[in-house]
Every structure is written in structure tokens, then in C-alpha cells.
């Protein structure tokens, strides 16, 4: 795939999955299209179910869009512990700035 971006998903157990993602789609969609389990994304990216929660690594520092109030509210109610690096992956767009970024998937999304 030309122009695709490599991003990685890591389970808290340590297992890591590398995927090639097309710029412009969301990180959640990249996970779903590559059968990454643990990203449930029940609502399909409408920012309403909080089941695509991820923890972001340092590659993403300063390159992710600012969090909307809505995402902030949903993360407060996410099933797994909220951390400073928590985001909803449906709200993050894949771009070249995310090359080699790692997203850690929490143990549970419900």
C-alpha cells in the first residue's frame, strides 16, 4: 500500500500487532480493518460508546489533535482506568506524524 503509515497496537499483556494504515482514516478504523482485538468500537466512531480507548506513547506527543469536551467526558466514563495518555482512537486520524506510534489497548472496554 503506497503512502501507508505503520502504527502498532500493544496489548497490556505485551503482545504487539503492526498494521499498515492509510492516512485519513481513524486509528480505530485502522485497528478494525486489521482485526486488532480489544478495540470494540461498537458505535462505529461516533464518540459515544468509549469502547475504543487506547493509551498513547511518546510518538504521539504534540501531534494528536486536542481532545474535544465530548471525548474528555466519554473517557471519564471508560471502563478501564483513565490515564494522562488516554484517548479514544476513533477521534485520532492516521497521518505521517504517527509513523511508528504505539497504542496500548486496555484490558477491557466494557
Amino acid at each position: 500500500m503506497s503512502g501507508s503509515i505503520t502504527i502498532r497496537f500493544r496489548k497490556e499483556s505485551g503482545q504487539q500487532i503492526e498494521v499498515q494504515a492509510r492516512p485519513g482514516i481513524s486509528v480505530m478504523e485502522a485497528a478494525v480493518m486489521n482485526n486488532v482485538s480489544g478495540i470494540e468500537a461498537e458505535c462505529g466512531g461516533a464518540c459515544i460508546c468509549a469502547t475504543c480507548h487506547v493509551y498513547c506513547d511518546q510518538v504521539t506527543e504534540g501531534v494528536l489533535p486536542e481532545m474535544s469536551g465530548e471525548e474528555d467526558d466519554m473517557l471519564d466514563m471508560a471502563s478501564a482506568e483513565r490515564r494522562a495518555t488516554s484517548r479514544l482512537s476513533c477521534q485520532l486520524r492516521v497521518s505521517d506524524k504517527l509513523e511508528n506510534a504505539v497504542f496500548v489497548i486496555p484490558e477491557n472496554q466494557f
Binding site: 478504523e29 478494525v32 486489521n34 462505529g44
Partner: peptide
């Protein structure tokens, strides 16, 4: 999103085809 042109058909899939 689909009608508005913000999402394409691939982005609407519940699961990847090879799932």
C-alpha cells in the same frame, strides 16, 4: 458521515473482510 462524503465504504465496515 457517508452521505456527507466524510466516510467511505471501507470505513463503515463492521469488521475487516478477512475477519
Amino acid at each position: 458521515g457517508y452521505l456527507a462524503g466524510e466516510k467511505d465504504e471501507e470505513q463503515l465496515l463492521l469488521r475487516a473482510p478477512d475477519f
